[in-house]
Design a protein around this nucleic acid. Structure first.
Lengths: 223, 223
DNA sequence: ACAAAAGTGTTGCCAGTACACCCATGA
DNA sequence: TCATGGGTGTACTGGCAACACTTTTGT
């Protein structure tokens, strides 16, 4: 058990699917690859794991440096370890999902000019490198399963939001339409949200009340 | 992104929490450590991952060789990557849960004499090495969350079983008592099981009907 | 006044729960 | 015949789904 040889050493990369809400749409952050192979294709953010840092430290540091987000919510997803998932080199990917609210995205810190990044609607994801499309698919699936049994989406809505906005996000992730009245009833009756007393005026139609998630709500499920 | 140095190489081990049912009790398989440090303590089965095998191949091969199980059901659990989770050496643990029915346990193949192993009731787990107690705790939690929304436990019951037996397993994992009549109603109404026509006679009290899981039932949740 | 979008109330159904009685066997 | 444990039926309840009308704003 304690015998290590050359074959026992592996390259590990952490890859993260960062989601946010931009103009009511659920989006994922991708970087553009700069060199061959797959030059110009899109890819998930992430980097090789050093042997002096944990998975969580690695991805937090990376995200801060390269995306400028200091308060990203992170959860582990799956490990992808097929021998040939990356050509030429054997690289194991440990993957995470990250959630960040749009306000924190706007307030992001300095990031390198050299990185070309873009938020993509989860329904129109471009061609990505290696097995990243598979990883993204699993990440969205993970998110979908998660929001059914937990209130994880509050990580995407720390600031004031309207119930119709929240509903549209649920509809995008679950990929089905929900009833306005029942949706409201569920959230209000569970005591997850509270009225801020403000309204978002200035749009066509009746202004919607602004809500916020209560602070003291804990996650329900670990997985 | 493609620059690797010495710091980029890591030792990865796969560790697996294998569960079965033995005499109605949910049990987990542990090995006994043979050398210092922690000599004599118990530990999860698992081994270092070579760079020519996937996580799933690695753990399947290991389990076959060292536990003798050829048809173990496996799912990924969490990754543990704290720098000092193992003393002296940096080792990352990717963990899995495994489920095997008691009949397959009895029919297991040859395994090395040198391995000392034992099935422990999940309520009375002995002292384990490193962070294995934490890993075991999370594995049980994973299993608990899983059986609520899926029929994963059919992996533990491929052969005939009685409903009271099945119920007791649910009660152990969920750690709460369930109503006999409602439990039966749920499984029968969902069409997950079918009557084999046999009974388990020879015990005190009325004999229980023997059921089996239907073959065509798929998993419902991925996570 | 009209259009657009948000807010509200009622009803029915199904799943889960609580609970009491009967049945088949071994001793 | 009694003890033991398994099988069955009923009534209640709360959550979810289906559905139509009213309210508040901008134009």
């Amino acid at each position: 058990m304690n015998n290590y040889n050359n074959d026992s050493y592996n390259i590990i990369e952490t890859l993260i699917s960062i989601f946010t809400i931009e103009k009511g749409e659920v989006k994922i952050l991708l970087f553009r690859k700069k060199n061959e192979p797959y030059k110009g294709y899109w890819m998930l953010p992430g980097k090789v794991l050093n042997n002096n840092e944990s998975l969580e430290e690695n991805i937090s540091d990376y995200v801060l440096e390269n995306c400028g987000f200091s308060n990203l919510y992170i959860e582990q997803c799956l490990v992808f370890s097929d021998i040939d998932r990356v050509p030429d080199k054997r690289v194991i990917a440990t993957t995470c999902i990250g959630l960040i609210d749009s306000k924190s995205v706007e307030l992001k810190q300095e990031i390198p000019d050299s990185i070309e990044s873009e938020w993509f609607n989860i329904l129109t994801i471009p061609k990505t490198i290696y097995d990243h499309d598979e990883i993204i698919k699993k990440s969205i699936e993970y998110l979908k399963n998660k929001i059914i049994n937990s209130n994880i989406l509050k990580m995407l809505f720390p600031s004031d939001f309207t119930l119709p906005e929240l509903q549209k996000v649920y509809e995008q992730i679950l990929d089905k339409e929900l009833d306005r009245r029942n949706f409201r009833k569920k959230f209000v009756s569970q005591g997850l949200i509270e009225d801020t007393g403000y309204k978002n005026e200035g749009f066509s139609g009746r202004p919607a009340k602004l809500y916020r998630f209560k602070d003291d709500i804990e996650e329900m499920n670990l997985f």
